[in-house]
Design a protein around this nucleic acid. Structure first.
Length: 305
DNA sequence: ACAAGGCGGCGTCACAGTAG
DNA sequence: CTACTGTGACGCCGCCTTGT
């Protein structure tokens, strides 16, 4: 494989992931993939047809002729007619997990399947917190918070957490309407929790205690403070803003995790491709050797006749 | 020792696709 | 329709290498 079919999406200024190759020159290459006779190792031609790593796996063992063009930067891009159809069907590249799993299901052993995500969420139904020494306003400053007993924060499925004193553990508070704060903290197992806390600070700088419960409508791990006696429109507005901020925080957290997973899958995918390249290079080498020896044999035979 | 550049990882946002 | 998920793009940061 000499021609580089690059993923240029990293440098592409366009925001859409379904950009099409442009500025194709008139140089046309034709690649013919020949099936090898190596047992238990069916050939799969994986062609990258879009800068966004759009991939199509051809049937094993078939001779496949594909046409590629060279773009202005020396990259090879497939342009055979089927591709146009596929582009329509697959306007969006399948996920790395799908690609890898497809690869591994039809592939020789050695390519691990990407495991399904394991859901593990602590079922926190109630948190009682007493925060005596956190100096915190609603302006979005960072506060420090920690459990008095670390075990209480790391226990899975716990019913009650009591946080009574400052110590270790980083907690950030989001900008909120006056008198409220979203507290995000990291548990001992690394999982994150969000708590909305109506903060009020006494003249002495002490933060008062609140009872915080998890309503059944919220996902596990997210708890809502339930300030009592909300009646005025202002309080209602504050409450909705608080909920909105909580939702955004939750989304950001989830997306952070998703991005992490996506990167991990991408790396695995790239590794898999590199392995395939190595295997195909080896096969190519073997075939060249075989061809060479057959040629020699043929020439030798022709000479003796 | 220090600045510059490359590289990899991370968090976030936007957006398309999907499931309910 | 809405919430959720997966991923590209972007900017930022820290680390490493290289040249001066």
């Amino acid at each position: 494989m000499d021609g580089s079919i690059d993923d240029k999406s990293e440098d592409s200024p366009s925001s859409s992931g379904s950009s099409q190759p442009q500025n194709l020159s008139t140089v046309v290459h034709t690649i013919t993939a020949v099936p090898t006779a190596i047992p238990n190792q069916p050939v799969q031609v994986q062609s990258v047809i879009q800068p966004t790593q759009q991939s199509v796996i051809q049937a094993a063992g078939q001779i496949q002729t594909v046409q590629v063009e060279e773009d202005g930067e020396g990259h090879l891009v497939r342009t055979d007619p089927d591709i146009e159809k596929r582009r329509e069907i697959l306007s969006r590249r399948p996920s790395y997990r799908k690609i890898l799993n497809e690869l591994s299901s039809a592939e020789a052993p050695g390519i691990a399947k990407i495991e399904e995500d394991k859901e593990e969420e602590a079922a926190i139904t109630s948190i009682q917190t007493t925060i005596p020494s956190y100096v915190q306003t609603s302006a979005g400053q960072t506060i420090q918070i920690a459990a008095a007993n670390q075990n209480e924060l790391t226990t899975q499925g716990l019913q009650t957490i009591t946080m009574t004193n400052a110590g270790q553990g980083a907690v950030t508070a989001a900008a909120m309407p006056a008198g409220t704060t979203i507290v995000q903290y990291t548990q001992g197992d690394g999982s994150q929790q969000f708590v909305t806390v109506p903060v009020s600070i006494s003249p002495a700088g002490e933060v008062q205690a609140y009872q915080i419960r998890a309503p059944s409508s919220l996902p596990a791990g997210v708890v809502m403070a339930t300030p009592t006696g909300i009646t005025s429109p202002q309080q209602l507005a504050e409450e909705s803003a608080r909920k909105r901020e909580l939702r955004l925080m939750k989304n950001r957290y989830k997306n952070r995790e998703a991005a992490r997973e996506c990167r991990r899958r991408k790396k695995e995918y790239v590794k898999c491709l590199e392995t395939r390249v190595a295997v195909l290079e080896q096969q190519n080498k073997t075939l060249i050797e075989e061809l060479k020896s057959l040629k020699e044999l043929y020439c030798h035979k022709a000479e003796t006749e």
